[in-house]
């Protein structure tokens, strides 16, 4: 399956094969081997290379949360047939990383934005967080308004690729 890791933005494709007591994984063309042992508390002991580490993974509504030792990751499965590839954008939706309030909308529908351009400012925990465009795109729709309270994961801005909305 192909995943996008939310924090780092890294995309990765993984295929697994059982090889005796170890799992062989094909990751981005390379082959990695891991040994694993289920622990009584539901965690797994993972051996990869020289690393032997306690790990845990769980499926949430639309993502998979994974810990490898002190590292935490959130993987979102990427389905080839869905929005992502069709729109040509890594992620056509700007979503709220946390519950909070929409403070300021810095763009308008139809605007053309560049990578890194601030799009929207949110407030949570009395702190302001500004979300920026990950790549060049056009603002397709802004389904929220300033002052609105929103849940984590709420869609704040819909993007479309630059060329698709050109006449």
């Amino acid at each position: 399956m192909k995943f996008r890791e939310l924090s780092s933005g890294r995309q990765v494709e993984v295929q697994l094969q059982q090889q005796g007591s170890t799992i062989q994984a094909r990751i981005g063309g390379a082959v990695a081997q891991i040994g694993r042992q289920l622990l009584p508390d539901g965690a797994m002991l993972i051996e990869i290379g020289a690393v032997r580490v306690r790990a845990f993974a769980a499926r949430a509504a639309d993502s998979i949360v994974v810990s490898v030792g002190p590292h935490s990751f959130t993987f979102v499965p990427l389905k080839a047939s869905r929005g992502a590839s069709r729109s040509g954008l890594a992620n056509p939706l700007v979503t709220a990383p946390m519950p909070g309030k929409v403070l300021k909308i810095l763009v308008a529908e139809g605007d053309q934005v560049e990578a890194g351009q601030p799009l929207i400012t949110m407030e949570a925990m009395k702190m302001e967080t500004t979300l920026a465009a990950e790549g060049a795109a056009r603002i397709k729709r802004i389904p929220v308004s300033e002052g609105q309270m929103i849940d984590a994961g709420a869609v704040l801005i819909e993007l479309s690729p630059l060329d698709s909305s050109k006449p």
């Binding site: 399956m1 994984a25 891991i34 290379g49 690393v51 790990a55 499926r59 590292h71």
Partner: peptide, 24 residues
Amino acid sequence: PSDETFKAAAILAELAAQSGTAAP
């Protein structure tokens, strides 16, 4: 994170994805 850590995490994600215990 080191590449090995990231790879291990991705493998675990795939394992969890295939596990069929999906629950909201």
